[in-house]
Design a protein around this nucleic acid. Structure first.
Lengths: 135, 135
DNA sequence: CTTAGTGCAAACTGTTTGCAGAGGG
DNA sequence: CCCTCTGCAAACAGTTTGCACTAAG
């Protein structure tokens, strides 16, 4: 894996954001430093970086992919109003690992927990448009 | 909500399948009885039925939507090889409900657990194509 | 009758890909 | 100098929408 200029900027921007950005959010940020970069390059690099285990890929139920600056095992919580995603540390502690190795013929290899709720800033701020609390 | 012919057949087919079908899988099945039905109608009806609480909508991380004949609260397990989805009953028992009401500023309103693994039939049958075990 | 629902085609969103040229090692 | 990576445009998959017509109640 070559460390190209675009690759490096994409990675740095994701890490410094400390957020779970989508490809196009990242594209917007990276464009400020590199106006001619293409969205395809952003997608390709995010894929490459996550395959290399340098970043995480986050597939929250039914929504756009997001990418995670933090690769250690943890769970996520997302806001039903603004769709931001945050890390949650205690998720794994809630689950009794021992009992989950198989069920109805499956060999279970893993699980994910996704919490949902309303984030601090959405709790303060009015939900401006009537249709923001879907799902 | 009118109970149209198409609505009724879509619902019946989903229920009798006892599976978690995607819109186009259902479309293929319904077409056998109603060859002129359109995919858009299937989408619209699945949406309507799930809003009415008659079926469930299943948004498994990063994949196509699936619809659930079973509306009672339960979790899901999906096969990494063939992507089928099954119900899992014991998921909720593993989690200590009490402690999850808030975290880092969020008001938590719910959570979902998604187990992954290899289903019984994929464990028997060879994984024919080399690229079947992605994610 | 009235108005929700339908079929069709076209639009849309998020993502991927083919290609010819550029630049990292 | 080679070959991975890039930018661009076009393709793609899943889903949604505008419209004029149909049918449920």
């Amino acid at each position: 894996m070559r460390m190209t200029n675009q690759r490096e900027i994409i990675l740095k921007e994701l890490q410094k954001s400390r957020q779970h950005l989508t490809a196009d959010e990242l594209y917007e940020r990276v464009k400020k430093f590199m106006p001619r970069i293409s969205l395809a390059t952003v997608y390709r690099n995010l894929e490459t970086l996550s395959e290399a285990g340098i970043i995480g890929k986050l597939e929250i139920s039914g929504r756009q992919k997001r990418f995670d600056y933090d690769v250690h095992v943890h769970d996520h919580i997302y806001c039903l109003q603004c769709h931001r995603v945050d890390n949650i540390e205690f998720g794994r502690n809630l689950v009794d690992h021992g009992s989950i190795t198989s069920a109805q013929g499956y060999r279970i290899t893993g699980y994910r927990i996704e919490f949902k709720g309303v984030c601090a800033s959405c709790r303060k701020n009015p939900p401006q448009d009537k249709e923001s609390t879907h799902e």
